[in-house]
């Protein structure tokens, strides 16, 4: 079976991450013994360790395993989205078609047919969903339903599909970490940004940044997150990416801002639908969409940034 090349530098960062997570777990355990209320943090850290283990196993097993994990992520996110948005009973079959786009898109990426990947969900599935909904023949709330389903597909399947697309980047464009290094980099940056924005917001937060959408978000948290992510990106980039420190700093800066908007956009949707969490799948975090909402905005951006810096050829000749 075809496997990814996992370079020594990627291994160092991965081991570092495990040491960090288990150390964090230890600190929280000690605080718990000291009768501090850290139960929620303990659950969150445990979930994080669990996610990291699944990621490690999938990436180290084989190429197909990693693709399947990303497919599963898309599936869970899409399922959450369709469960908390109201859909008409006549849309059942349309939604079934929407689910079918996940394996097809994965196959397209797997066969390196990048041009079709760019067009598949935004154009062809968009048209097909419309066709299926016309066949279902319920014109009450037609456009609203169409827009809801397409938004779900664009975020949960198309944008998250970029994670799989990152895996197709040939090794020669990133000798430091290979494609796994790049995937690992974008996941680390996004999660660090989420964490630092929340941490800085809790520690120094005073001025609300966008109170009508997300009352807990503050300017201090936002700026703190951007600065911390930029610095973190410069530290971790030499291990995982071919970026110079200036390029890494810019990547961290842009991804932090994009991640913030991903988070806020999903908050706005949740607020509109009157739900707090998208599901209760990940203990302490909520649903897949709650945890990976910033990734929806950062993953495509990172791929195109990388492709701009190192003009790459991964497409088949179509």
């Amino acid at each position: 079976m075809e496997q990814f090349i996992i370079t020594p530098t990627v291994r160092i960062v991965l081991i570092g991450l495990y040491i960090f997570l288990f150390a964090l777990m230890g600190i929280f355990k000690i605080l718990q013994i000291m009768k501090k209320n850290v139960d929620n943090w303990l659950i969150r850290t445990r979930s994080f360790i669990f996610i990291t283990i699944i990621f490690t196993v999938a990436v180290c097993s084989c190429v197909v395993g990693a693709y399947l994990l990303i497919g599963l992520l898309s599936y869970l996110a899409l399922k959450e989205f369709f469960s908390f948005t109201p859909t008409r009973t006549t849309d059942r079959k349309v939604i079934l078609w929407a689910y079918c786009s996940i394996p097809i898109q994965l196959y397209i990426i797997y066969s390196h047919w990048v041009v079709l990947f760019y067009l598949f969900i935004p154009l062809y599935v968009f048209l097909l969903i419309t066709v299926r909904m016309v066949i279902a023949s319920n014109t009450d709330g037609f456009l609203k339903s169409l827009a809801t389903i397409q938004w779900g597909l664009m975020t949960s399947v198309y944008a998250l599909g970029y994670l799989a697309l990152i895996l197709t980047i040939p090794f020669k464009y990133n000798p430091a970490g290979g494609s796994v290094g790049l995937l690992f980099y974008i996941l680390l940056i996004t999660v660090t940004n989420d964490f630092m924005q929340m941490f800085c917001g809790k520690a120094f937060g005073k001025h609300k940044i966008i109170p009508k959408v997300s009352p807990n978000k503050t300017w201090e948290g936002f700026l703190g997150g951007v600065i911390a992510t930029t610095i973190f990106s410069m530290v971790v980039a030499p291990f995982l990416t071919p970026f110079s420190s200036l390029q890494a700093a810019f990547a961290g800066f842009v991804l932090a801002i994009a991640g913030f908007f991903g988070d806020v956009a999903m908050s706005a949707v949740k607020r509109d639908m009157g739900v707090k969490d998208t599901s209760s799948l990940i203990p302490g975090h909520g649903g897949v969409l709650d945890r990976f909402d910033s990734l929806i905005f950062t993953a495509p951006l990172f791929f195109h940034y990388f492709a701009y810096i190192n003009p790459i050829v991964i497409a088949r000749g179509h």
């Binding site: 599936y75 399922k79 469960s83 859909t87 009973t89 059942r92 689910y99």
Partner: peptide
């Protein structure tokens, strides 16, 4: 709540919902 959407009476294929 939900199974009426997942697999209603008379349907052959199920559609995933929470």
């Amino acid at each position: 709540n939900g199974p009426d959407k997942i697999l209603p009476k008379g349907a052959f294929l199920w559609v995933p919902f929470i």
